[in-house]
Amino acid sequence: MIFGISIAFLLTAILTVLGALAAALLKNLVHCALSLTVTFAGLALLYLQLGAQFAGFSQILVYIGAVAILVVFAILLTRGAGIPEYRDFSSSWLAGLVIAAAVFALLGWAVARSFPANIAASAAPAVTVQSIGAALMSTYVLPLEIVAVLLTVALIGAVIVAMPESRTPKSGAEASGGK
């Protein structure tokens, strides 16, 4: 226990942060995507350490299994005709960095200043998948349905947006223009 935190946590945390940094700094897009995956994995581990097994596993399933793959697909699909000539970082990257640092500073300050006394680590809540399922069907049934609709809409929307435009023949316009 270094500074009140366990080694396992420390290592996982370092892994996560490094993965995020790698995603930020790497030039090759695919490498970025893969480091993103590493970050997702680190986060899943952290969830497991916190006792949120369901969240952890769903993180692995959804994020690593779907979102990361999706990102890789997108990168591959937008490889483009040639190698991009542009630089990787925007011309005003410093401003973005500064802002990000400001955000971190704000958050860090808030965290540091808000726990003057040690809070006793309470016991982990008793969670089972069954209780989650029951809760989903009773207390959280409305958000469940809404998310279902949302997912449907997103699915349809994504399909439509990404669908290639069908070249409809302009027969109707030609026929009317020929009179």
Binding site: S90, S92, G96, I99, A102, V103, L106, A110
Partner: peptide, 20 residues
């Protein structure tokens, strides 16, 4: 877009800081 994002974020930071 990046510009907008930055301004957005800056605004949030400022507001949050102010609130705190």
């Amino acid at each position: 877009t990046p510009g907008y994002l930055r301004i957005l974020t800056l605004g949030v930071v400022v507001l949050a800081g102010l609130a705190l």
